[in-house]
Amino acid sequence: MSDYKSELNVDALDALLEEERTALLSGALDKLTDMLPRKEALIDALNGVPHADIPTLQSLDIKVKRNQLLLDGALEGIRNVAERLATLRRLRGSLETYGSDGKKRNIGVDTDHSVEKRA
């Protein structure tokens, strides 16, 4: 691969990493699936060519790691939301309280939300 083609791939990957960062920060996680094949292809193309411009590659590496931290944070947030929703579903049918003896008690709650019509 020519130096020119390699430089184009570096520039394209740099722009894609910035686009990925913007998507992560704005919560547009659905855009990440469209970016992944392009990102993999650019990284594969760059891995196959020896580079003399180490600072540029180090800059790309920093951006990849930065985006990975953002992605990890987004995944942790999604896990927290899923856990919270599961807890809310579980608690929706009961009420936890403590008795005078200090022991936790579960009180079942009727979850029938139907409306009875009377004439």
Rank of each mutant, 00 (worst) to 15 (best):
D110Q: 04
L69E: 13
A45D: 06
V64K: 06
A12S: 14
S114C: 04
K31V: 07
K63A: 08
S100T: 12
H113D: 15
I54D: 01
S26Q: 12
D3R: 08
K31L: 13
P37K: 06
T56W: 00
L75E: 06
L75S: 06
A86M: 09
A23W: 04
V81I: 13
A86V: 06
S2I: 09
K65G: 02
I78T: 09
R66S: 10
E18K: 11
V109R: 08
G99Y: 03
P50K: 08
K104F: 01
L32R: 03
L91Y: 12
L69V: 08
D14W: 08
L46I: 03
L29M: 10
S26W: 03
S59C: 03
N106S: 11
H51R: 04
D11F: 10
E76Q: 14
L95C: 09
R105A: 03
N80H: 14
E40L: 13
T33C: 09
L46F: 01
T111M: 07
R79A: 12
E76V: 01
L8K: 14
R89G: 09
D34G: 10
E18A: 11
D14N: 13
G93Y: 07
D112S: 11
R92K: 15
N9K: 11
T22D: 12
G48N: 09
A74H: 04
K5N: 11
N9I: 07
R118M: 06
A28K: 15
R79V: 10
L16I: 04
S2Y: 09
L29V: 10
A86I: 05
L36V: 09
A28T: 07
I54W: 00
R118L: 11
V109E: 00
D72Y: 01
R21K: 14
K63I: 05
R79H: 10
L46H: 02
E116W: 04
K65Q: 12
A28F: 05
D101I: 08
K65S: 11
G48P: 02
E19Q: 14
A23N: 05
E40N: 11
I62W: 04
L60R: 02
R38V: 00
A82F: 10
K117R: 15
L71S: 03
L36N: 11
E76W: 09
P37H: 09
N80I: 05
A52M: 00
E83A: 15
H51S: 02
A82K: 15
G73R: 06
N47R: 08
L36G: 04
P50L: 00
L36A: 13
T97N: 08
T97P: 02
L60I: 09
L57S: 00
R118Y: 09
M1V: 11
L13E: 02
E96A: 13
L16N: 04
T22W: 10
L88V: 14
I62A: 13
P55K: 05
L36I: 03
S94N: 10
A28Q: 15
R118C: 01
M35C: 03
A52E: 08
D34P: 00
V10W: 01
H51L: 00
M35H: 10
I62D: 07
A82E: 14
A15E: 13
L8F: 07
L25S: 06
Q68D: 12
T97I: 12
K5E: 15
E20S: 05
L75Y: 07
R21P: 00
K39P: 01
Q68W: 05
